[in-house]
C-alpha cells in the first residue's frame, strides 16, 4: 500500500493533523522532562569523584545543545525539500523550526556559561566548541532576519533556504570541535563528549531529558507552523471556515 505523502504537503490537510499531534507531543515532553529531571536530581549521587553538584546543569545543557545542532539539520532538510519539490509546507516547516532552534542554541550557551564558571572558572572562552555554537546562533538569527526582511514569501523562502544550506558547514565544525580525531591537535577547553564515561544514572536522566526536549520541539514547531499557515493562507476559504476555540 502506498502512502500518499504529498497529501500532507498541502496546508489545509496538514493544519488539522498538526493540531491533533500537538497535545500528544506536549504531554510526552512534560512527562519525559519531569521524569528525567526527577531521576537526575533525586536518584543520582550528590558528589561524584571529580565533580560537585553543579554537574546537574548537564541534563539541560546537553539536551539543548543536541537539539540546537539537530534542529539546524532538520531545518536545512525542510529547506532543501522546499527547493526540490517547491512545496509551500516544507518552507513553512523550515521557518517554524528556526526560532525553536535559536532558543535551544541560546539555552545551550546560557547553561554552558554557568557550567563553565563553576568548572573552568570562566563564563566564556573563545574555545572551538563555544565559538562554533555562537556562530550557529548567528546563523539561526540570520535565517530569521533574512526571511522577515523580504516581503514576498516565495522569494524569502528560497533566499533563506540557500542561506541555511550554506550555514550547514558549521554543523561538522561544531561536532569535530570536541570530538577531534587527534586530541593533541585541537586544544579545547570543553570536554569531549564521551557517553561511556558518564555514570549510568546520570546518562539515563540525560537521555530521557533529551528525548523530552525533542518532543517539546515537535510540539512548539507544530504550534508555530499552524500560525504560519494561518498567516499565509488567511485569504483561503478553508481558513475562513475555522472557528475560534473557547
Amino acid at each position: 500500500m502506498a502512502i500518499n505523502w504529498f497529501k500532507y504537503s498541502s496546508p489545509s490537510s496538514f493544519y488539522p493533523l498538526a493540531g491533533k499531534m500537538i497535545p500528544v507531543f506536549m504531554t510526552l515532553a512534560i512527562v519525559l522532562i519531569m521524569g528525567g529531571l526527577y531521576w537526575g536530581f533525586f536518584e543520582t549521587p550528590d558528589v561524584l569523584s571529580d565533580q560537585k553538584q553543579y554537574y546537574r546543569i548537564i541534563y539541560v545543557h546537553v539536551a539543548s545543545a543536541w537539539m540546537a545542532m539537530w534542529l539546524y539539520v532538520v531545518m536545512v532538510a525542510w529547506a532543501v525539500l522546499g527547493l526540490i519539490f517547491n512545496t509551500r509546507m516544507s518552507y513553512m516547516m523550515a521557518s517554524a523550526t528556526a526560532i525553536t532552534g535559536a532558543i535551544m542554541t541560546a539555552l545551550s550557551l546560557w547553561t554552558g556559561a554557568f557550567w563553565g564558571q563553576t568548572s573552568w572558572g570562566t563564563w566564556w572562552d573563545w574555545d572551538p566548541r563555544m565559538t562554533s555554537q555562537l556562530i550557529l546562533l548567528f546563523l539561526y538569527i540570520g535565517y530569521i532576519a533574512l526571511q522577515s526582511a523580504i516581503e514576498d514569501n516565495r522569494r524569502s523562502d528560497r533566499a533563506s533556504a540557500v542561506l541555511a544550506m550554506v550555514g550547514l558547514a558549521i554543523v561538522p565544525v561544531i561536532y569535530y570541535s570536541i570530538n577531534c580525531p587527534d586530541p593533541n591537535e585541537c586544544a579545547s577547553l570543553h570536554q569531549e563528549s564521551s557517553l561511556k564515561r558518564v555514570e549510568s544514572n546520570i546518562l539515563i536522566a540525560m537521555l530521557v531529558v533529551t528525548a523530552g526536549f525533542w518532543m517539546y520541539c515537535f510540539a512548539v514547531i507544530l504550534m508555530r507552523v499552524r500560525n504560519i499557515i494561518l498567516q499565509r493562507e488567511s485569504h483561503t476559504q478553508w481558513v475562513e471556515r475555522l472557528e475560534v476555540k473557547k
Binding site: K52, Q53, R56, T111, F114, Q117
Partner: peptide
C-alpha cells in the same frame, strides 16, 4: 552543595 546559584540559574 554551594552551587545552587549556578544550577538554578540554568
Amino acid at each position: 552543595g554551594g552551587y545552587g546559584f549556578y544550577v538554578w540559574s540554568s
